[in-house]
């Protein structure tokens, strides 16, 4: 694709970020979004062997819960498909089994969230399991989705075009996402999503900026936002290369 990208962060955290991409087509923006949701592989528990389960839940229910616990995903290339990391859990009641009780066989793959309750055990109940974690893509199961609530919006440019008439009622003008005001980027939440509060007594015009997208990305803790976006871009590149190779004569 011709042209250059320009990426600018509006908010930046480890697990949640908002950034602006300029110079991308809608198709490319959506491609990145889809890659973040479905094509970036993450680790998750995939197979569970129950040694003892006298809790109130069935084996299958517990296996699902274990699968949904996010695990830290090692750097790219450390693991390939079908590699297995074994985690074990052994808790006797009365106690609650938490995700932090999972003992991993590999320091690179550990529960990303420590306080997720797996099951509450009463007196005399016990849970002992061995679980295999695999690296897979979000396409196969939602537990392998690294990106949570990934989305984008057009960047909106706000321009003051004049004053309101003196005795005119001020109506609220609600906008969402991020606005651009004379080159300055502002999250609409900062002025309560209401342009009438930011520009009292003014008449404003709002228009979408072409080819500028504000992404909002959250991760489940498997990796940082930065890692997720880079891996998503890499996965698009890899598929594009594959296609190029496949159609060559």
């Amino acid at each position: 694709m011709p042209g250059e990208y320009d990426v600018e962060f509006v908010e930046r955290g480890d697990r949640e970020a908002r950034f602006l991409v300029r110079g991308a087509t809608p198709a490319f923006a959506n491609g990145i979004r889809r890659a973040m949701v479905a094509d970036v592989p993450t680790m998750a528990i995939d197979e569970v062997r129950f040694i003892e389960n006298s809790s109130v839940m069935f084996d299958e229910q517990l296996a699902l819960r274990l699968g949904l616990v996010p695990l830290t995903t090692p750097p790219e290339g450390e693991f390939v498909e079908d590699d297995v990391v074994t985690l074990s859990l052994d808790v006797s009641g009365p106690a609650t089994a938490y995700s932090r009780d999972l003992v991993s066989g590999d320091a690179l793959v550990t529960p990303a969230e420590e306080n997720v309750p797996i099951i509450e055990l009463k007196e005399g109940q016990r849970l002992e399991v061995e679980a295999d974690a695999r690296i897979e893509r979000g396409q196969t199961h939602a537990k392998h989705q690294g990106g949570v609530a990934v989305g984008y919006r057009h960047l909106q440019r706000v321009e003051v075009v004049g004053d309101l008439e003196e005795f005119e009622d001020e109506e609220s003008r609600i906008v969402r996402g991020v606005i651009e005001d004379e080159g300055e980027l502002l999250n609409a939440e900062e002025f309560d999503n209401d342009l009438a509060k930011r520009y009292p007594g003014k008449e404003v015009r709002v228009e979408d900026v072409p080819d500028a997208f504000v992404f909002h990305v959250e991760t489940d803790g498997s990796f940082t936002v930065e890692e997720l976006v880079t891996r998503a871009a890499d996965s698009i590149e890899a598929r594009a290369d594959e296609l190029e190779e496949a159609v060559q004569l």
Partner: peptide
């Protein structure tokens, strides 16, 4: 029975906040 580990709709991990 127990709190769902993740949100059904968006998939963010909510189970960890239940006890608090």
């Amino acid at each position: 029975m127990m709190v769902p580990v993740r949100c059904f709709t968006c998939g963010s991990v909510v189970g960890e906040h239940w006890e608090e």
